[in-house]
């Protein structure tokens, strides 16, 4: 646990912001086309990608130690289990 803090440059933050805006435009574009069930999958995949960028760079997770990364992983697994297991029931009823 050092007192070294990573400083993310303005340039890098701006690049991530541009990527996030581009992905938003892509989601809007994709969902305006009739793709049926695929558009839910496509929109959620892009949303996860955007969330990943925000967590990794804006929230500095990329520069954090093992503890926070594992806790994040644990939280996401918990979410995946309670959402996933509910759908095993709901989808195949």
């Amino acid at each position: 646990m050092s007192e070294q803090h990573h400083i993310v440059s303005y340039r890098k933050l701006t690049c991530i912001w541009l990527a996030l805006l581009a992905l938003t435009a892509l989601t809007v574009g994709i969902t305006r086309v009739e793709l049926g069930g695929w558009k839910v999958l496509a929109a959620l995949t892009i949303a996860c990608l955007k969330a990943g960028l925000v967590i990794a760079v804006f929230m500095h997770m990329k520069y954090e130690g093992r503890l926070l990364r594992w806790l994040l992983f644990l939280t996401l697994m918990t979410l995946a289990i309670f959402i996933g297991f509910t759908f095993f029931d709901v989808l195949y009823r």
Binding site: T27, T31, V40, A43, L44, I46, A47, V54, F58, M59
Partner: peptide, 25 residues
């Protein structure tokens, strides 16, 4: 400030999912 910023990013993060689910798909 860092913790305040983290809270703010969470607000953004949640909206990233609300937006496609309610407005787009």
């Amino acid at each position: 400030l860092e913790n305040g910023a983290l809270y703010w990013h969470l607000v953004d993060l949640i909206w990233i999912f609300i937006f496609p689910l309610y407005y787009l798909v």
